[in-house]
Write a protein that binds this DNA or RNA. Structure first.
Lengths: 157, 157
DNA sequence: TTGTGTGCAAAAGCTTTGCATGTTG
DNA sequence: CAACATGCAAAGCTTTTGCACACAA
């Protein structure tokens, strides 16, 4: 649960530019809270939920509320800077997505560990199914569930 | 939200046998509530959540509680008679799975409509990734999200 | 008869909403 | 200065838990 304070400054600046642009185009206010949340997210690695992010900001003495966290997460999803996931539990998890290539997830049902992988065949499936079923497909989630054979410390989360 | 009272009697009897066998092997009690819930599920088509199922049973004058519904759903997932889904909202959805071939879902982000499709390439991806990442993969979810082009009555659910 | 399963209601966990206040444009 | 965003707390929803009673084995 420790977040590693590794901020890729360059990536963050680009993300910030995208966010700024998004807010300007939509007549949204560029508040310090919104930028602070973006920055915290871009410091984090892996996956997080709204509560974890909120607590993390609180312990860093930011003055933010849950409402603002939820509100901002929604904006960031809307401009594709973060991605929303449901890994089988009723908690929405997020991960930053700008500058990272599209990938899918493999989740250990024992310890909750999440691995990532890419497979180009999914793109083919999306294209084919979109055409067959007359859908304009915008995104997808492929989650594989199983048990990791090696380093599984069971029932972690 | 109407459930269509079409009970495939044969399929239901087989499912019941599987459930009975599961309960016997695990020293669980074969209560009338558990069978009633299984029957209601096998009457339903499409996807449902715990609350919908609970309400539906209440209106049919069954005397069941939410606790029992949730408990039984868990058992049915454990013996593979139903499948659990998270289609992006924080509600767990289920569908009966015995007698139905494995399939994935295409969800309309406007109206909530869910279509099903099959693609054998997913099996290949599962096999390959399981091997590469040293996981014993038990199941998966592939959800494609998009907008249906034709008969979309927008914002239904 | 014994202990698991049940119903009911309260509690818990995540997310949304209402309202007064603060702050951006 | 006007509207939008924020903080806070309360409310909403889904799911889980505690407890006394019921009933399957």
């Amino acid at each position: 649960m420790e977040s590693q304070e590794v901020l890729n400054e360059e990536l963050f600046q680009e993300a910030k530019a995208i966010f700024t642009n998004y807010m300007e185009s939509n007549n949204l206010r560029k508040t310090p809270e919104r930028f602070a949340i973006l920055e915290e997210i871009y410091k984090r690695t892996d996956h997080f939920d709204a509560e974890v992010l909120f607590i993390h900001m609180k312990t860093q003495n930011y003055r933010v509320s849950r409402a603002t966290v939820y509100n901002t997460l929604e904006l960031l999803v809307a401009c594709d800077l973060i991605t929303k996931h449901q890994f089988g539990k009723n908690v929405t998890q997020y991960e930053k997505s700008y500058g990272y290539k599209q990938h899918d997830h493999l989740i250990c049902v024992d310890c909750g560990k999440v691995l990532e992988f890419c497979d180009p065949r999914i793109q083919n499936i999306k294209n084919m199914m979109g055409e067959m079923l007359d859908f304009k497909i915008t995104h997808h989630n492929l989650n594989l569930y199983g048990k990791c054979q090696g380093s599984c410390d069971k029932k972690k989360s």
